[in-house]
Amino acid sequence: MVRLIIDRKDLIDTISSFKKKGFSYLVKILGIDYIDYISVLYILRNLDSDEEIEIEVHLNQNDLWVPTIINIFKGADWYERELYEMFGIEIKGRKVRKLLLEKFSENIYPLRKSFKWGTK
């Protein structure tokens, strides 16, 4: 498992350069709340050599946004919307038109650790 921790400003360049190298398949985008920071992971796969790479971005809790990669991977669309509604991470460069899964819970971000199970 190769993991690359990069700065947010290099995200678009890194992902598009990996795509040019053959990592043409986006497996998943996911977020993890480590309380000090939230990390966003982009898992890419090379379908010819079956190699995989995880590109990780650490976000400060009071500066939560990432640029969209929808222009590089069309499949990122729903993952980004999910990321926004589960963690409240703003996706810059696209308008998150509406919530995907949690229709009635705006401004509540259930997968953050500060959201306790059993509360509303």
Binding site: K28, L30, I32, D77, L111
Partner: peptide, 29 residues
Amino acid sequence: GEIMFYLVADEQRPYRLAMRTPAFINLAA
């Protein structure tokens, strides 16, 4: 399709369990 689990382990329970469910992204297409 591909089911993927991403687990950050804690001692007794998952710290974070992320799932890639296949139908989710097939529907997005």
